[in-house]
Amino acid sequence: MALQSEASRYYFGYFWWILEPLLFVAVFYLVFSVFLKTRQEDFLVFLMCGKLPFIWFSKSVSQASGSIMANAGLIGRIDIPKTMFPMAIIQEGLYKQSMVFLLLFGVLFVYGYTPSLLWLWLIPIMAVYYLMIVACSFAGAFLVCFMRDFTMFISLGMMFLMFTSGIFWDVREIGSPAMTDAILTYNPMAFILDAFRQVLMYNVTPNLLGLSLNVVAFGLLLACMIFLIRKNSQLLALKSLTA
């Protein structure tokens, strides 16, 4: 319903779901491939495998973070679980992202990357990534209710993640294996984006230990956030109504 009404507001409607991420990719491509002449092989595919999943995360988390505040009108009328608002945004994002992934597969195919059985690893990778999105969105929405200033930190954080997670550069080609290891271990975003690329471009199985550690970490964060949001439901309502 929200998707319908959103699409009807713009002239290009549903087309924007695909167009917007593509424009982002185009800007990066122009800068790094045309201006800076990066030597990365198949840079367009490389970039899309990193940038498109990243946009899924950044858009969902940023929007979901403001979602409880944005629904003060509804919250003032009825006692509903506050997790519903970020969840609604995340589900919309999931729906849009499925179209974007279809497009990504199309581009991969055109560039000669053929699907193999190893691509089935995408399912657990996406599941872990989705868990990350939900956990971070809940945390963001909760914090923004208490202090609206967190919106600023969140957008800065997204910028930080965009530069540090190997979207337009290769984590594995920075000349120091120790640094590569450190980034992949401590930056979950870099880890996931790398896993997408390893599977889609190089047919390499993802690091299962890393994947499971991320499940544990973000699973814990999610459990804490659900508990906190449930427990403070009325307080969050008061905050959103009086902010």
Binding site: G73, L74, I75, G76, R77, I78, D79, Q234, L235, A237, L238, L241
Partner: peptide, 28 residues
């Protein structure tokens, strides 16, 4: 309606009863 919790004091609603707040314009 259970939307807000009091800062102090008690609110007891009989088990299983639903309450809805009807107000102008908001929530659409």
């Amino acid at each position: 309606a259970g939307i807000l919790a009091p800062s102090s004091g008690n609110v007891t609603r009989r088990r299983g009863t639903s309450a809805a707040l009807l107000s102008i314009g908001l929530g659409f």
